[in-house]
Design a binder for these strands. Structure first.
Lengths: 248, 248
DNA sequence: AAGTGGTCTAGACCACTCA
DNA sequence: GAGTGGTCTAGACCACTTA
């Protein structure tokens, strides 16, 4: 079997979907689809798994399998888009703020000593009212002397976000990789554990030194991260396959 | 069952791996692991699937399941790193160069008329001798008048890459999303079809106008894309989970 | 209560690698 | 040929949604 059944099935489904279905429509249920294609339900599900990973389908328990909307372009441009106080109501919701000694791992990432106090602000990024990303912003407590004055957690969170702006952040570098949402992130994103996410790690520098680190997890099913000069032209999604040679 | 078995299994395996195994070591085979944990092999495999998606494991048919090396940081900084001729031997290998009328989709992305001739150069990005990414660079033929003179495909490819530099690219914007490798990409990356990839779409602008578009697919299992000021500090991987509260 | 997707099982066979 | 992961099956039960 040079080509697995589930992969062939996926190809057939892609064609069917593109030709006969549109966003929001419901596919026939899995048992029927499996019967129609003459495969076991597990095999059909393997094909649907692929399509879901690609963001073409959404499956809802108790409802059915629907055609997904195109992915939302989410700007990841640093201070302008992602930063807290800077101007207009950015769609961030503060979840948490804890101050705790750095774990070994966190200490290494932040470049501080293990056990040193670190503020961690957790936020949720909402795009059209729905949670698209979580973020944990870590900054050494020593760098923000005025935060200690706030008693309430929400005040402390806002304090951290406000004061970090006055640090004079003058550089940032990012990395993006694939991950899966663990329990906490999954809950915040209202998704089951194991949901694939794009993990964005941002290092913020002030005066040539690492000043803060943010780890964000974006829903990989619905997000397309956008960087750079704020959309030169509308970014239209492109097939992963070679767009010129229409082989197969 | 509030927590699926496979998810719990994954957690247990993560702990075991971190504690008792190191990069390159081979796990016991699936049948034995399944028996040891008292689950069906399919359930165990579901847990391993997660770990593979996270880049913690690599499975090789006929060999076994091994602990993966940490992901490689791959700079995606545009002209400096990714661009062709610019100086030292960049680890790119030219695969292909075709000139063909733009499909409807490609035309839309490039902002040209459907059917207009477009050069497409396909390249392979090698990191430590292994294929990490494929790239298709699309540029309207009208913009590169001198390319027509080259007869051999490899000359045309080099011609496109060289002449595009003289266009005076002065801006780029990118997007990153999750995808799966179709047959062609999969073959180039020496991976099975369906392999998860990070799809990077780059728009190059010259004189305020869109001049070229590149679509790259990076192996999601082994790549961590890095952006920005070329590594302020070594980027150490961070768990997707909340790094401060060590709940569970 | 009926219908959906999500999980889990036990077993079979295949494709690949290596001694 | 023995051992590994990859695919596929048929069936069961669960969790969730809607009516």
């Amino acid at each position: 079997m040079p080509e697995p059944k589930y992969w062939h099935l996926r190809t057939v489904l892609v064609r069917t979907i593109d030709a006969e279905f549109s966003t929001g429509q419901i596919l026939p249920n899995e048992r029927e689809l499996a019967a129609r294609f003459g495969v076991a339900r597990a095999t059909l599900r393997q094909a649907l798994d692929q399509l879901e990973l690609e963001g073409r389908l959404v499956r809802r328990r108790g409802i059915g399998t629907l055609i997904a909307a195109p992915r939302v372009g989410v700007p990841v441009n640093g201070r302008e888009e992602g930063w807290p106080g800077s101007g207009r109501s950015q769609a961030w919701r503060i979840v948490d703020c804890v101050t705790a000694p750095a774990t070994a791992q966190l200490a290494r990432v932040l470049g501080v000593a293990e056990g040193e106090a670190v503020h961690t602000v957790r936020r949720l990024r909402l795009v059209q009212g729905i949670a698209m990303a979580t973020e944990s912003l870590h900054v050494p407590a020593a760098a923000l002397p005025h935060v200690a004055g706030f008693a309430a957690e929400s005040d402390r969170a806002r304090g951290v976000l406000r004061q970090i702006e006055r640090l004079g952040i003058d550089g940032e570098s990012r990395s993006v990789e694939l991950g899966v949402a663990e329990a906490e992130q999954a809950a915040l994103l209202e998704r089951p554990p194991g949901t694939p996410v794009l993990v964005v790690t941002t290092q913020y520098a002030a005066a040539g030194k690492l000043a803060a680190v943010a780890v964000s997890t974006y829903r990989a099913d619905t997000c397309k991260l956008t960087f750079g000069e704020a959309g030169l032209v509308e970014v239209t999604p492109v097939q992963a396959g070679s767009p010129v040679r229409s082989a197969s």
